[in-house]
């Protein structure tokens, strides 16, 4: 196991490559998901205001 993390002495290069890749890819889904929630909220606000008289039936 220790040998696996050691990467034949290239641990710094190999693991930082993988770490940076993971962070960048993670951001590429987290940011759009966050924006999606925001969009749905904005849509809800917008249509609530517009269709406010719905409640009176």
């Amino acid at each position: 196991m220790a040998e696996f993390f050691h990467m034949g002495g290239y641990a710094l290069y190999v693991w930082s490559s993988i770490g940076i890749t993971a962070v960048v890819l993670l951001l590429n889904v987290l940011l759009p998901l966050q924006k999606h929630r925001e969009m749905l909220r904005r849509a809800a606000d917008f249509h609530e205001l517009e269709g406010g008289n719905h409640d009176t039936r």
Partner: peptide, 21 residues
């Protein structure tokens, strides 16, 4: 994911978005 967001943003006032909400 990104295209869906773009779609929601541009078509926010449309009826299908209202239905979705």
């Amino acid at each position: 994911l990104r295209t869906r967001n773009e779609l929601l943003e541009r078509e926010l006032p449309r009826k299908w978005v209202k239905q979705l909400v």
